[in-house]
Every structure is written in C-alpha cells, then in structure tokens.
Nucleic acid binder design. Structure first.
Lengths: 229, 229, 229, 229
DNA sequence: TATGAATGAGTTTTCATTCAT
DNA sequence: TATGAATGAAAACTCATTCAT
C-alpha cells in the first residue's frame, strides 16, 4: 500500500559555490525557502542563540543583508523555520485520518509509520528539539507549538483511541495517558536522531524498527485478544 | 516500603536579597554548590547560550567575578551543572539494582517510580533538555552524557529485562527496543515539565499517574499472563 | 501692490499612489525635480543622516535605483536639495533690490515681507535647519552656503543700511551687527516652523505678524524721528 | 559687577592618552560626566545620527562597552547630554531673576549678558543646534526642550517685559512678539558659533559686541525717552 | 577571597550603493 | 531608462572574561 503523499521537509540549501558565476542571480521566488532550509540546518546544529546569521546566509548562498529582505529579524526567521516544517506534515496527518475508515488499529499503525518515516528521513525531525530548547525564551512560540501541533496531534490520537474503545476494538485504557505513551517513543526517536546519533561511534537508530516494536507492544496493550494471528 | 534514599538535586539557590541581614559569616564550602544551583535554574530557563552569567551571579547572591574563582569558564560551569545533577541519581539507581533481588517486574516498577519521582520533584528534570539542546555545540558533553548516563541506564535496564526473560518472568521481547520504549515516557515527562507545563493555561502533567499507566501497559507487554492481581 | 514674482520652492512631491491610473506617459524632464522635492521633505523631517533613500524614492514614486540615475550619491542629492531651494529665492531678492529705488526703509520692509512669506509658505524654510545641522559633516556645503547665501544676503542688507545712513534716512548704526539683528528673527521663524510648530499643542507661529512687529521695532531703531505717522 | 555664578558646562573630556598606565582605572564617580562631555563634543560636531559611539568612547578614554554601563542606548546618552547642558543654566537664570529687584531694563541687560557669555564661552552653545536638528526624530525630546527651556525662558522674559510696561518703564509693546525678538539674536549667535565660525576663513563672531548692540537697539524700542545718557 | 568596573571580540541589524534584468 | 534584489561595510549593542582594588 504505497503512500502517495510523501513526507514533507524543506529542500536542501543550494551549494554556495557557484564557481565564478555573476555576483548574484535573481531568485525572488525561491529565496525564502532556500533561506529557511539553510536556517533550519544551522538552528538544528547550534540552537537558536548560538546560530550565527552569517552562517545561515553562507549556507543559503546569499549575503547577510539578503536575509533581512525576507525576514525582519532572527526571531522571525526562527519562527518561519518552525512553521515551514510543521504545517505541511500536520495537514498531511489530518488528511490521512479524515480519509481512512479502517479498523482503528490499522489506522494507528499507519500513523505511526508515517511519523516514523518523517523522523527517519526528513530534517523536520529537529523541530521538537528546537522548540523544546527555546520554549523558555519564546513562550509565544511554545504556546503556538502547543496549540497547533501538540494539542492537535494529541486530540487526533485521543479521538482515534476513543473510537476504538467505543467500537470494542480496544480495551478501555486511560485515553489521556495512552496518547502520551504512544507519542513518547516517537519523540525519543526524533531527539535521538538530532542529538545522539553517531555519538561515541554508536550505530544510527533504526527508527522504523523501533516503532515496529512499539506497534507490537501497543497491540498487546490495546487490542483485547492479545496476539493476533 | 519507604525509600530511605531520597532523590537528589542541588539545594535551592539562596535568595539574593540578604539585605542587611545579621551578617551571617558565609560558609565558604557551600559557595560552589550555590553557584551550581543558581546556574542550573538559569540554564534551565534560557538554555546555555542565552543564559547570562550576570543572572547566575545575581541568583547565587555573588558577583560576576566570583564565578570565575570556582569555574574557569561558562562552559565548565555548564558541565558542572550537568554532572551535579546526574551523578548522585545514577549512583542511587545502581545501588537500588544491586541491592534488591526482587522479582524482575517489581524491580522495574521501583525503578520507574524512582525516576518518576526525580522528574516530578527535582530540578534535575531539566538536564535532558539541556543536554539535548546543546549536544550539537558540545559534542564532548554529549559523549559524556551518552557514556555515563544513557549507556549505563540502558545497560542497566537491558540487564534487568534479560534477567527477566532468562528466568521466564518476561516474554522474549526485543531487549534493545524495549529499553527505549520503557525510557521514552520518562523522557517525555521530563521534557514536558521543563518546556510545556502551564503553557497556554494547561494543567501540570501528573507524572506519577502517567508512569503508573505506563507500568500497567508494560506489564501487559512483558509479563506472560497479563493482569496479575 | 501685488508681487508679480512669487516665492519659489520645489513643487510638491507626486503622490506615490498612482495605482493603475490612466498610464500617463511620464514627462522625463520632471523626474529630477520630483526627486529633489521628495528628498527635501525627507531630509527636513529626519535630517541628512537619518533620512533613508528608500523613503525618498517611495515619496517620489520611483525605485531606489532610479535615484542613482539622476544623483550619484546621497550627498549630491542633499546638495541639490539645498541649491534648488536657495538659488531662485536669492535671485529673486537681488532682482528686487536692483529694480526698486525706493526710500531705504520701504525697501527693507519689502525684503522682510518677502522673506517672511517664503518662510511661512514654502518648504524652503527647512534649509537653514538642514545646513546648520550638517555644517559639521559637510564643511564644503557649509562654505557654499556661507558664500552663496549668507555672505550675499548679509552684503545686500549691509549695502541697503549703508545707503540709508549715507542718505541720512537711517541713524548711524553699527552696520555689521544690525544686519545680523535684522536677520535673526527670520532665522528664528524658519527654525520654529521646522522644529517646534505644534509641539506640545502650541499654536503655529504667525510669522507675518512677528515680522511686522520686528519691522516696527526696526523703524524705531533705524529711523531718526521715531514713530512716523 | 562681577558675576559670582559662572556659566555652567560639562568639564572637558580627559585626554585618552594616559601613556602606558594600567589598562583601566576605577573612576566610578567621574565616568558618567566624562562620557557626557565627550558625547557632547561628538554630537556637536556630527549630529546625533552621524555620531559614532566608538568615537565618543575614544574621546572619553573608555571602551565602547563602558558607555553601556552608564547609558542604556545612544538615544539616552543624547538626552543626558541635552539635560546636562540645559538644567544648570536654566536654574542659574531663574536664580538671577528671583534675586534682583532692579529697574526692568537693567535686569534685561544682565540676562542678555549672561546668556551671551554662556554662548560665547561654553559648550552648551551647541544644544540649540542639536535639538533643532533632531526635533523631528525625537518628538519627545523636542517637547521636553520646549516645555523646560523655551516655555520657561519665554515666560520669564514675558513677565519681565510686562512688569516694565506696568511700571511705565517700557512702552506698551507686543509682549509675545518682543520676547521672540529679544531671543532671536541669541539663537543666531549660538548657531553661528556651532555652524559657521571660521568657515571660509571668517573672523569668529564677537557675541558680546553683537549682543551689546542688540541691547542698545532694545533700549530704543522699549524705553520711552529714547537715548538715555 | 570577593568585587564589579572595564574591556573588546563577536553578533545582529541597517542602508547606501550596485547591477542583472 | 527603470527596476528592485542583492550586497557588504559600518554601526549599535551584548556579554564572557579580566583585573585593579
């Protein structure tokens, strides 16, 4: 069952070494995305405060001044990065839910797989780390993320669980807690990838495999009869 | 079964408003800890880069210059904060394991409760957030944390799981993955407390209750016969 | 006695909101003046250094780049503004003097009235403020203004006074000082209009009335018999 | 009649070349005034916008950072300069008025001489230029100056004139206008000193002599019987 | 030891000027 | 001619670190 709706993340920043090309080239349309993509990389590596706009500019292949043509401040650029990474994926998840009238566990399974794929393959995986790190400095951003991502995501999962329970597909678990228990390994995976992968020469985390085990455990927890065939 | 070995975190920073109080001669030995405690607060709120040593000094009730009598740089102070919060708790956990020859699940249960308590009640809960945020800027610190905390913690849990499997107490789960699935909700709890608690007027997370549900789920997953009495 | 020779100041800047008006083909000859007029407004409000060429361009209804088609630098544009406002008025004053063989005090009266009108009604009133403010940064401009405006203006008045004294129309006042005492209230009026009019909710200065009183005082000072009928 | 109450202006900035003295010396008390004095010089020469804090710092013999220990921004430093130059002189003038029950014209004469001396000999002479130049950018400052200096000064002169008229010492002139006509040559003198003195090789303006002539003219205008002995 | 005034390198931000279109 | 995206030098401001006291 191929997923026709691939995970979304900004395109890679252009290589800044265009050789001896003209001093600059008109890129009106593409510039903002390129800058956001470069900024995402730098923020991901350094965090907000330690990120230098000079480096963002260099990776985007533009000058420092150009950043200010598109974003009025470092802070706004940061917010743009967060928004750019979040919104498409969120919409994608909601589309998936709306469309699919599957058995509840199958739907959960697909959601897990989708998020696992995003975490494993896209740069959006750094967003949680960034938001977590800067929640204290940008309460407004924390509130935005809480409202638009966490609350929506949790609500979506809660509805799914409740539906399963109501239909007798799931055991009557504590919905609020279970939502968080479902999400936690995904969060751990995202964080691992952005903070500890390859540290000390360890193997990269196999997110898909971890989430598959998570799914198996969830089946035991949620589905009444335990080991399905 | 009271726990005679309470969770460990640095003492609270002294109120900086000593005013013209009865000039209590300052015990010199306490200074470093006071500074570390104040630094932990500030790093927790702002992150490493955005934390200002001026604020640390103010909260510790000393002058900026004094910080440098005890710590050669901001970076070393940061590391001291991490170490101060981690090591005692780690030793406590290892002591617990070594001493108690309980049934495996009961031991796991006790470990979960202990960590939950640390997360819910001590300032050490901010450490994961700090380390995660700065892993990119301080690879050496990330490696230290990986080696001393994550690897040790994971190893400890893996040993516990393996022992349970070997003894026939646990189903033969994938040990590597299950370790992470056990830890993930604890990480989520710690992060929630330091980044989203009270954001947007939400209720504080009830860590103990969440971890209790987690424990129940784990029992279903790990223990062959499901709900024991 | 109508003045056939009205006060001179650059035309108002065109409204920049041409919208999609009936694409009137732009008369090319007018561009530089439009830019100078817009620049005069912006320099008047902000001073030279704080004036942004972006704002000048916007008010002139052109793009930033276009400014450079007509003026090689901000500095040259500034000088063009000064010149554009000064020269016509200066020529007008000299024409007036040359033409009119009136009694000396009547001529002085007409000069005062003319300058008062320029100050009260044209944008050229900001020139003294601009030149004064930037004299330190543009010694060359200060010298130009001193030579072309101040010296000429002072010389003209000195000649007038001397003629009056020689003819026995005026008392033998100190010419050099009196010239400055005649000019001072005009300068004050110009400055008031551009810096303090309406500040703190005050009434706009009635330049004509002030200068009329000035004229009456001057008559007492200059004319031997005091109150003429 | 010696004036025991000399004109007030900040002390000159210290020479920054202390030879090979220690990197810096503790000057807690004196620093702010030294900085204000240096800033006054630089603002006077360049205007607010074109003044570089680096230059202020250099002239004050301190580093850039030190400025920010005492003044939170360039703008606040500017205001401090204005206030420092204005307030002492204003108080001095009011003291003079309050103390002296002389004939009205003698009092006016003394006031003129005092202001002339301040203009001729102190750095406070640049204040009008600075305020005029930046009134557009700092409306709040313009309002402050209008309220605290202009209104107070004008009110003080108006009261003096009115008293003279009421006592029959002065002719019944238009008080509002005459106040401005009295002030105008002082303003011109201050501006001349700061913008045109020595431009193009001219002689410095002899402020005292100019004001003496002004005084003579005022006597003709104000005092009923004309030429007193 | 302790202080905190002073430093200065480093970062964000602005804006006159250039130049491909 | 005209545009406006792009540049980059310059300037305000910050803050870890030093050091005279």
């Amino acid at each position: 069952m191929p997923d026709p709706d691939p995970p979304v993340s900004p395109p890679p920043a252009p290589s800044s070494s265009d050789g001896d090309a003209p001093r600059w080239r008109r890129r009106k349309g593409a510039r903002p995305q390129e800058i956001v993509a470069a900024a995402m990389d730098v923020f991901a590596e350094r965090g907000f405060a330690a990120a230098r706009l000079e480096e963002v500019a260099a990776r985007a292949g533009v000058s420092k001044g150009t950043l200010y043509l598109y974003f009025p401040s470092k802070e706004e650029l940061f917010k743009a990065v967060i928004r750019a990474a979040i919104l498409p994926n969120l919409e994608r998840a909601e589309r998936m839910i709306a469309e699919v009238p599957e058995p509840s566990f199958a739907l959960l399974e697909r959601l897990l797989a989708m998020v696992a794929e995003v975490i494993a393959t896209t740069r959006a995986a750094v967003i949680p780390k960034l938001v977590i790190a800067e929640a204290g400095n940008f309460p407004e951003l924390a509130a935005f993320y809480h409202r638009e991502v966490i609350r929506r995501g949790f609500g979506l999962l809660a509805a799914l669980l409740q539906r399963g329970i109501d239909r007798g597909e799931f055991r009557p678990v504590n919905v609020e807690h279970t939502v968080r228990l479902i999400v936690a390994p995904l969060l751990l995976s995202a964080i691992w990838r952005t903070a500890f992968d390859r540290v000390d020469g360890t193997e990269p985390l196999d997110v898909a495999a971890l989430v598959a085990t998570h799914r198996d455990h969830l089946r035991r927890v949620l589905v009444a009869e335990g080991d399905a065939p």
